[in-house]
Amino acid sequence: MKRVLVAVVAGGALVLTGTPALAGPTLGPYGYGAVRLGMSAKRAAATGAVVLKMRAGEGSCSGWDFRAHPTGRDSVGLYISKKRGVAVIFAAKGVRTPRGIGIGSTMKQVKKAYPALRIPRDGDPYVVVPGNPKAHYSFGASAKGRIEALALVHVEQDCVS
């Protein structure tokens, strides 16, 4: 973790203290920024952080983008379920978990950060989010073992398979 030195002049004496610097945007354990897992579409939109990209239509989920992280034409930044609220939040480049894992991390780094990682025969590796048993991180890795996709997922989501 980066550390920042803060200088304070107190009664003519210079005092230096080390404090952790913000490491950048963090995904989890309950959401990203003001957007939280389980939050309704109305409440998520009210944060001003997201914009509707794809209406639910016949499906149960609508697709949204974060204003700060717009996605390409055929993708979304998060899904919001009619039943469950915010169900899946995808990490944008530069966004990391509290343990420092993000797009570009290696599977070796993921396993070290999350020793309880589960690797199913079919599907992406995942782990229950430390501090939130109602969510898990899902890691999409390349054939070379680099993380290409990272999502914070509500365990009862009904948007993606």
Rank of each mutant, 00 (worst) to 15 (best):
M54L: 12
G72V: 03
L16G: 04
V6E: 11
R3L: 13
T26Q: 10
S81H: 02
K53N: 10
A151S: 15
A44M: 04
H69K: 02
K134I: 03
Y79N: 13
G12M: 05
K111T: 10
T26A: 11
D158I: 09
R67V: 15
K2V: 05
R36V: 00
S105I: 01
A68H: 03
P120E: 03
K83G: 00
R146P: 05
W64F: 13
P130E: 02
N132A: 09
V4G: 03
R146Y: 15
S40T: 06
D158F: 11
K42T: 15
H69N: 09
V155N: 15
V51P: 06
S161M: 14
T97S: 11
A21Q: 13
R96V: 08
D74I: 02
H154K: 15
V110F: 09
R99Q: 09
V88S: 06
Y114M: 09
R73C: 04
V155W: 08
A46H: 02
C61S: 12
T26W: 00
R96W: 01
V76P: 06
R118K: 13
Y30V: 00
R99W: 06
C61K: 06
S60T: 10
R84P: 00
G104W: 12
F66Y: 09
A49I: 02
I147C: 06
R118V: 13
G77S: 03
P20V: 10
A46G: 08
P70Q: 03
F66I: 04
Y126A: 11
V160I: 14
K111C: 07
F139Q: 08
I80L: 01
R99E: 11
R55V: 12
E58P: 00
T26I: 11
G48Y: 11
K111W: 12
P130L: 00
V127F: 13
V153F: 09
N132K: 10
R55K: 14
K111E: 15
P20Y: 08
A23D: 13
L37K: 00
G28A: 11
I89R: 03
G11F: 12
K42Q: 15
E156H: 14
L14G: 03
A135C: 13
R55H: 10
Y79G: 08
S161G: 15
G94E: 06
V86H: 01
I101T: 03
A151R: 14
W64A: 05
G33V: 00
L14N: 02
R43T: 06
S138A: 15
K112G: 03
P98L: 01
V50F: 01
K53L: 11
A113S: 09
A49E: 15
T47Y: 00
N132R: 05
P98I: 01
P25G: 01
V160P: 01
L16H: 08
V128M: 14
K82H: 08
T17L: 13
F66D: 06
G123H: 07
T106N: 07
Q109R: 12
P120N: 06
A151H: 06
S62K: 06
T97W: 08
G102D: 05
A92V: 04
G59K: 08
K53I: 09
G28F: 04
K108H: 13
R146S: 12
E148S: 14
A87G: 14
V15Y: 07
G18E: 15
A113Y: 07
A7L: 10
C159T: 08
Y126K: 11
